[in-house]
Design a protein around this nucleic acid. Structure first.
Lengths: 334, 334
DNA sequence: GAGATAGAATGAAACGTTTCACTTGGTTCA
DNA sequence: TGAACCAAGTGAAACGTTTCATTCTATCTC
């Protein structure tokens, strides 16, 4: 009833344990016919190598970790899915952990993963500081969406995204534009907001900027700013916040996009579902997930290679939350 | 630069390897003061037990698997999140795998997980047949939302849910009711549809039943049935399908709920976001996730114990997709 | 004071692999 | 003919733990 071990296999095939190991792994130098015989017997006995023993011997577990800040943010399940699928192609399993938006949890999760002996880690950090440096010293790691220079980096061109969003609103005639940024201690949020702000200031007027968590529920303070109606166009640093803003505006009887236009960021699946459907900046989640796994694999194979940084493109997805600036309450400036 | 091993620790503390092991694990019989000293040295050396070696010796990896059909269905990330969090409380890590709605993938995933040596498995099967029986023979397993009698089962009272949905529509005056069921080879879908149908037939009239995948995109055939407008009330076997139906109806100029009322099932996070917000049947995902982990832990501790079946309650969440039956095109009966 | 007893600590085997170093026997070649 | 070589196969150590069986020492009991 015990699982068959290499020793059982060796005995059954009448060879040494070493030969059995070589046959199973396709390594070593074995006669064509012996190898075939061993493999046949292995099939009959339904031999499956014990990964734990293998892991202990080789130090490789065949598992990688994926740390994301919040699985209920619909952005992350998409990412997780492609990571899982891509990893599977290489026979790797994926430990997923939700760091709950907290650097301490991040640290706990990381050390738990490392204790379990992962071969590598794909990490979507909460903030821009490398809080995990010493912990990850021996673990090949690729970082998503944050600038931590000591790792391989998978990014998207968020500066472009911010400009695209701003340009789109301005092209629609909006002159007073507000920005709801994500937490500024996160690179992706900061760069989006900065690029958008710069563009707005150059071509129109920046009415206000506020900072928000990546969530649908907006702070009362932010709602208050929205209620002042000083901007006819709003750029949100994430679709979740855009949706939150739209819902709030609508609840106050403000029409989107007739009264206020909104553009989001991320193109989460929900973005198509809202009414009106959300105009937003799309980032290639699938490609980023695939790139993350591939880069990790490369890093595992060659821990000392030079760091890699891959930047993906983003694109404006035009749906229905941006309309022409109507009854502009402020004087046009040419 | 090598990680400190038990042997290093033993040498540094001037004791045997065995003592070191006992001290670290709090087992064996050691003098109070020796134990303390070893632990202190362990702290200084930052000793971390090598889980792989431990796993090989004990056969326990401290990891569990979670297999779900589709991570992009927003129902599952919520589940995954609670499972991860609950597991973490017991120091367990979670392998997540997406079975992509396919029994073959399910089989592949399962054997991959087993090879990696999981201590137990939480499984949300695609269909009702135990396709994995032999594979899982030695792996403690709990099954969610399907009736596979040889495992521990975590369920919700979907029959009640179906009745609640039907009763709600009927109470609003609807007499012609259609059902969009999930795949009938899945228990949860079947039982919802059957209970709803039974209730409808007893108290009103069942206009039609169609079967759909758990997805937003509905078959043309289903859209055609919707277009016939033979029902003023629609019960969908999942929120995703309900949303799909509402979107289709709206695209045809049909008002929800003025012309047609819809109730969904699951109460996924999106349900609050649609316009109008979805009236649906809520199931306690968090509690189910927690129960799944707890049941699994119990089963791991006692593989031979009697099977457990936990059934959770469901509740109707009233939002805005159900309204009074207007201009009923069919004669009221009674 | 001798034997028994209990607590404290240790030695070493075992878990299932991988892999280095080695043997064996046959072939090649000068 | 024999040295050299090669391919095929083997033995055994090692990876880092856990844990059984054992030893040692000090204390207790009669």
């Amino acid at each position: 009833m015990r699982r068959t071990t290499l020793k059982d296999l060796a005995k059954a095939a009448g060879v040494s344990v070493a030969s059995a190991s070589y046959a199973v792994n396709g390594t070593g130098s074995l006669g064509e016919e012996t190898r075939a015989r061993i493999l046949r017997v292995a099939g009959e006995l339904d031999y499956k190598p014990n990964q734990m023993a293998k892991a202990m011997k080789t130090g490789q577990t065949g598992a990688i970790g994926l740390m994301v800040p919040d699985l209920t943010n619909p952005f992350f399940p998409s990412l997780a899915q492609t990571v899982i699928q891509t990893a599977r192609l290489s026979g790797l399993s994926v430990f997923i952990t939700d760091t709950e938006g907290s650097p301490e949890q991040e640290r706990r999760s990381a050390s738990q993963l490392i204790d379990h002996g992962i071969d590598g880690l794909i990490w979507f950090p909460i903030v821009d500081t490398d809080t995990l440096g010493p912990l990850l010293a021996n673990t090949p790691t690729v970082v998503l969406d944050r600038i931590l220079p000591s790792y391989d980096l998978i990014l998207a061109d968020y500066a472009l995204g911010g400009e695209l969003a701003a340009a789109h609103l301005i092209a629609a005639g909006h002159r007073e534009i507000g920005i709801i940024s994500g937490p500024l201690d996160a690179w992706s949020a900061r760069i989006r907001a900065e690029a958008a702000a710069r563009y707005v200031e150059a071509h129109a007027h920046l009415a206000w900027t506020v900072e928000s968590a990546f969530a649908i529920d907006l702070d009362p303070a932010i709602k208050a700013v929205l209620d002042e109606r000083r901007a006819t166009g709003v750029i949100a640093g994430a679709d979740l916040m855009a949706i939150g803003a739209i819902r709030h505006l609508q609840s106050q009887g403000v029409q989107v996009p007739a009264d206020v236009s909104v553009v989001g960021f991320d193109d989460i699946p929900w973005a198509q579902l809202t009414t009106p459907a959300l105009t937003t900046i799309e980032m290639p989640v699938e490609e980023m997930g695939v790139a993350a796994v591939e880069t990790l694999l490369r890093r595992i194979a060659n821990p000392k290679g030079s760091r890699r940084k891959i930047v993906f493109n983003v694109a404006l997805i035009t749906r229905s939350t941006v309309g022409p600036a109507a009854g502009a309450p402020f004087p046009e400036r040419s």
